[in-house]
Design a binder for these strands. Structure first.
Length: 464
RNA sequence: GGUCCCUUCGUCUAUCGGUUAGGACAGCUGGUUUUCAUCCUGCAAAGGGGGGUUCGAUUCCCCCAGGGACCGCCA
C-alpha cells in the first residue's frame, strides 16, 4: 500500500470560497491522519479568468487557517504538453477519435433535442469513421471513446456504491480544436502524475469521476480512491457560490473570527465524531476519518461560527488571544501600539467576557487602544451639570490615592451615591462615559484599573 | 427534461433493529449581576408520506413526495 497522497485543486479565478476551504481542510486532515502528503494544484488553464493574485490569495488563506501544502504548488498550465501527449496516445491506441462536427452543428442538435424534450447526447457521428474518409480542411476536436454498453460502478468512500449506465456518458471532448486539453483530461493526467492515492472533492464532481476513471483504465493507470463530500448550502438550501455574501474566508476574518474557531466549525460541518464538538488542531488530526463524513449537504450557519469563535475567545491562552487580536487589529483596525501591550493583556480577562469576535474585543478595548476618547453626541448630552459635579467630586476623592483598585474605589463610589442621593447608575454612567465615550462596556472598576490613575485623572479633567 | 445523490429538533449532528430518540448552537424561562455581557437553572423543539421485512423499525427493502448536484470546445 503506497503512502497516502491527496491534493486540493482550486482554480485561481477568485477568492477562496469557504466550501473550498473545507474541502482543503478535509484533504489535509485526512493526509495528516494517515501520515501522507498533501499537495496544492493550481488549475489555471482558463487564461481569461485566472489571475496570479488569486493564486497568492488562495495560498495565504489556506495558511491563515493552518493548512500548508507539501512541496511546490503544481501549476496545471505548465503541464499542458503532457496532457496533449496523453490525448495523442489515447488516439493512437484507439480510445479516442477525431470529431469534425462544427460548434454550430452541435448547437443545432442540442436545440432540436430540447424542442423534442429528449436528453441531448452527442451522436458519436465520427466515432467509427475511417481516417481516410475524414475532411482535411476542418480542425477536429478529439473525443474520448466512452463505453456504450453496460454500467460502471464507483466505490465512493463517502457516497458508497454509485452505479451509472455507460451510455449516459457521452464521448466527451479531451482536446479542443485549438489543440488545448479539457478539464477531465488534464485532471486525470495531473492526478496520475502527481501520484494521488485519494481524491477528496466536492460532490459536484461525481459525474466527472466516471469519465476520469475511463481514462485511467484506457491508459492502464492505477485508479485512485474517490471520496465525494456533500456540498455546503446557503441557508436557503442552494449551492454556495462566489456570488453569495459572506462566503470567502476574508469575510470571516474581517469580522474577527479566529482561524482555529473557523477550522473547528468547518470540521464539524458535515463531519462528526460522536458528540464531540470542540477539537484542538491535534485532536482533529487524530480523530479525522472519512467514515465520519455525512452524506447530506449542510447549511452554513453564521450563528454557530460566532458561538464557536466565542468559545475559543473565552478558552484559549490569553497570550494567544492577544496575538490574534494584534494581528487582527493590524490588518483591519488601528494598529496596537506596543506600549499598550501590558494594559491590554491584563484587561483581556474581562474584555473577552463580552466578545464573540475580535472586533468586539477591539470595540470594548478602544478606550485603551486609542489615546483620545471618542464621544458620540447623544452620550455626551448625558454629561450635564449634575454629572459634572459628580465627576468633580470623584476627582477630589481620588487625589490622595496611591493607585486605583476596587477596594479603595468602592467606598468612594458609595459615598458619592449617598451624597448625591442617587443610585449606582447615577454615579457610574457619567464616569463611564467620560472615560470611554460609551454607555456600555466593561465593568466600571475594570475601567478604572485598566486605565490607571494618571489616565483617569487626565480624562476626567478634560471633560469638566 | 435526463442521470445521480440526499431527507432525525430552526441549524450542525448522535443513534450502526429494542433509547423517555442524546448533545451542541440559536430560541424562550428563572437566578446571579454595576451598564452591556458572562455565568448558572429550567423549558420548548425532530425521524417527509405510504407500503413491506421483523416479535420489534429512525435504523433494512420498495414506491411516492420534497430538496440538491451534474448535464460546456469552464474548471
Amino acid at each position: 500500500m503506497s503512502k497516502v497522497a491527496t491534493r486540493f485543486a482550486p482554480s485561481p479565478t477568485g477568492a477562496l470560497h469557504i466550501g473550498g476551504v473545507r474541502t482543503a481542510l478535509f484533504n489535509w486532515l485526512y493526509t495528516k491522519n494517515q501520515n501522507g502528503t498533501f499537495h496544492l494544484r493550481i488549475e489555471d488553464t482558463d487564461k481569461e479568468r485566472s489571475k496570479e493574485e488569486y493564486k497568492l490569495q488562495i495560498i495565504k488563506s489556506l495558511k491563515w487557517i493552518g493548512i500548508e501544502h507539501d512541496g511546490d504548488e503544481y501549476i496545471q498550465s505548465k503541464k499542458i504538453d503532457d496532457h496533449i501527449k496523453v490525448a495523442n496516445e489515447l488516439l493512437k491506441n484507439g480510445n479516442a477519435y477525431k470529431c469534425y462536427c462544427s460548434t454550430e452543428e452541435i448547437e443545432e442538435q442540442k436545440k432540436r433535442a430540447k424542442q423534442k424534450k429528449i436528453p441531448y447526447v452527442y451522436d458519436r457521428k465520427w466515432r467509427d469513421v475511417d481516417e481516410k474518409d475524414c475532411p482535411k480542411n476542418i480542425k477536429p476536436v478529439i473525443r474520448f471513446k466512452s463505453k456504450i454498453d453496460g454500467s460502471s460502478l464507483l466505490k465512493d468512500l463517502v457516497q458508497g456504491d454509485v452505479q451509472i449506465e455507460n451510455n449516459s456518458i457521452e464521448d466527451f471532448i479531451i482536446l479542443r480544436n485549438d489543440g488545448t486539453p479539457t478539464y477531465n483530461l488534464s485532471v486525470t493526467v495531473d492526478d496520475h502524475q502527481m501520484g494521488m492515492t485519494h481524491i477528496i472533492r466536492g460532490d459536484d464532481h461525481k459525474i466527472n469521476t466516471f469519465k476520469q476513471i475511463q481514462i485511467y483504465l484506457a491508459m492502464g493507470w492505477e485508479v485512485p480512491k474517490f471520496a465525494h463530500i456533500p456540498l455546503i448550502h446557503t441557508l436557503e438550501g442552494k449551492k454556495l457560490s462566489k456570488r453569495d455574501n459572506a462566503s470567502t474566508l476574508d469575510d470571516y476574518s474581517k469580522i474577527g473570527i479566529m482561524p482555529d474557531a473557523l477550522r473547528n466549525y468547518l470540521l464539524r460541518l458535515g463531519w462528526s465524531y460522536q458528540d464531540k464538538e470542540i477539537f484542538t488542531l491535534d485532536e482533529s488530526i487524530k480523530f479525522f476519518n472519512l467514515e465520519g463524513i455525512g452524506k447530506s449537504p449542510s447549511k452554513l450557519d453564521i450563528s454557530r461560527i460566532l458561538s464557536m469563535n466565542e468559545h475559543y475567545i473565552k478558552t484559549i491562552d490569553e497570550n494567544d488571544l492577544y496575538t490574534n487580536l494584534v494581528n487582527y487589529c493590524e490588518i483591519y483596525k488601528d494598529k496596537i501600539n506596543t506600549q499598550k501591550e501590558t494594559k491590554i493583556k491584563s484587561s483581556l480577562s474581562f474584555l473577552k467576557n463580552k466578545a464573540k469576535t475580535l472586533e468586539d474585543i477591539f470595540n470594548n478595548a478602544k478606550y485603551i487602544i486609542l489615546d483620545e476618547v471618542k464621544f458620540n453626541e447623544d452620550d455626551l448630552k448625558l454629561i450635564d451639570n449634575k454629572a459634572k459635579k459628580i465627576i468633580n467630586e470623584f476627582q477630589n476623592e481620588i487625589k490622595s490615592l496611591e493607585s486605583l483598585n476596587k477596594e479603595n474605589l468602592e467606598p468612594i463610589i458609595n459615598k458619592l451615591i449617598k451624597q448625591n442621593e442617587t443610585n449606582f447608575k447615577g454615579v457610574g454612567q457619567p464616569l463611564r462615559i467620560a472615560l470611554t465615550g460609551s454607555k456600555f462596556g466593561p465593568g466600571l472598576y475594570d475601567i478604572f484599573i485598566s486605565l490607571g490613575k494618571d489616565d483617569v485623572e487626565q480624562r476626567l479633567g478634560k471633560i469638566l
